[in-house]
């Protein structure tokens, strides 16, 4: 198995490619119904948290941005694609950098909790704040504010689903630790 530092560019491309496809599918196809509003939340952010924790900040930057942008284009909301690309890409990068900085192989549980808490706060600020800012210009503050709770819930689902998935995958398929860069 290749080590982290010697991953070829072909390997990096294939990692990002598969993660992009996963992010798109988690955004378009995997949806959980919410009873009160009869709406859905998608699991795009679960894929972003998972990618950032398991594969590092740069994989999450590209796959998070491209995956959600492709999901917007494929589901007929192409007008949001550039915003999704920027917001979710930045979200993945920030989460990945925080986790990488605070959580090493021999880190304590306290470090782990700090890393995940900071990652969640930063991810929510970047994602929900980014959309609020962009939507404020396009649809106005009123409509943008109505989207804010949904975006925060999406992020809660992201961390609630992303971390257990990352841990489960690491346990079920140990070679994945070598795919991080």
């Amino acid at each position: 198995m290749e080590s982290k530092n010697t991953l070829s560019s072909a390997f990096k491309i294939s990692t990002v490619t598969i993660l992009t496809a996963i992010t798109t599918i988690f955004t378009i196809a995997v949806r959980i119904p919410i009873a009160p509003t009869r709406g859905y939340i998608n699991l795009g952010d679960v894929a972003i948290y998972f990618s950032a924790i398991t594969f590092g900040p740069f994989s999450a930057l590209v796959s998070g941005g491209l995956g959600t942008a492709l999901a917007d284009i494929l589901s007929g909301y192409s007008q949001w694609a550039p915003i999704s690309f920027a917001v979710h890409g930045l979200e993945g990068l920030v989460i990945g950098l925080i986790v990488q900085h605070f959580y090493g192989e021999n880190s304590s549980t306290a470090n782990l909790i700090v890393a995940w808490t900071l990652a969640f706060i930063a991810g929510t600020v970047v994602m929900a704040g980014g959309y609020l800012l962009a939507e404020n210009f396009i649809v106005g503050l009123g409509a943008a504010l109505t989207e804010l709770p949904g975006n925060i819930i999406q992020n809660i689902a992201g961390i609630a689903g992303g971390i257990p998935l990352a841990l489960a995958i690491k346990k079920a398929y140990p070679p994945v630790v070598n795919f991080k860069w």
């Binding site: 959980i32 998972f50 689903g161 998935l165």
Partner: peptide
């Protein structure tokens, strides 16, 4: 709901991640 969907996502992710070295 999250708990129910978890095994499905784990299976899909492992299957997909195993494709990375092959694609590379």
């Amino acid at each position: 709901k999250i708990r129910n969907i978890r095994p499905v996502l784990i299976s899909v992710l492992i299957y997909s991640i195993k494709k990375i070295p092959i694609l590379a």
